[in-house]
């Protein structure tokens, strides 16, 4: 049920406006002489704090191998449906990656759709997608604003790997069945 909030009646000085306006002008005058807080952007670059969610990128492991296995969880979780992955099989002629079996044939992120929510990074089981420091994406055409796989790896670079999941897997494969 709606109910009425009684407003406090205005005091004399409030009803006269002028004292209030003068008080306001005092505040603005103070600000007139305060130093500027604006960052003069193209000349001065902002310091990007850790944990900043910039442009999503794909990263490689310390050995320069693609980490993404195209599980498409990021594509699934992406709220604005900006990610589009074409999965594919890793060919057997890549000896250091063939044991991963699966990798993306194409990986497109439409930066006109991306909302920088970071859910793709959150959901990635392989720690292959990261929102990094780049905050400015520009292009003259819509097509330019779609980051393809090559662009994503170029933006992402290499990040240290803490798990070496697939390296362990490969080592186990080469060792065969050690127990028994």
């Amino acid at each position: 049920m709606a109910y009425v909030v009684e407003r406090k009646s205005l005091s004399l000085s409030e009803r006269l406006y002028l004292p209030q306006i003068v008080a306001g002008m005092k505040v603005t005058l103070k600000h007139l002489f305060k130093p500027n807080v604006t960052l003069e952007y193209p000349d001065v670059r902002p310091a990007i704090p850790p944990g900043y969610r910039g442009v999503p990128t794909l990263v490689k492991d310390p050995n320069g191998r693609e980490k993404c296995v195209s599980c498409q969880l990021c594509e699934f979780v992406c709220p604005p449906k900006a990610i589009r992955i074409t999965p594919g099989e890793v060919p057997a002629n890549q000896p250091d990656r063939a044991h991963v079996e699966k990798g993306p044939q194409a990986f497109d992120i439409d930066m006109l759709r991306c909302i920088y929510c970071g859910l793709c990074q959150e959901v990635c089981p392989e720690e292959a997608i990261f929102l990094q420091n780049t905050f400015s994406m520009t292009g003259y055409t819509r097509a330019e604003m779609v980051n393809d796989k090559a662009k994503l790896y170029e933006l992402g670079g290499t990040l240290p790997d803490q798990h070496f999941k697939w390296d362990k897997k490969k080592a186990a494969e080469e060792r065969g069945n050690p127990h028994h």
């Binding site: 603005t28 600000h31 007139l32 002489f33 305060k34 130093p35 500027n36 807080v37 604006t38 003069e40």
Partner: peptide
């Protein structure tokens, strides 16, 4: 300029 300074901005420069 005045508006910028009052708002803590440098204004057109």
């Amino acid at each position: 300029k005045v508006s910028a300074w009052m708002q803590g901005r440098p204004g057109p420069n």
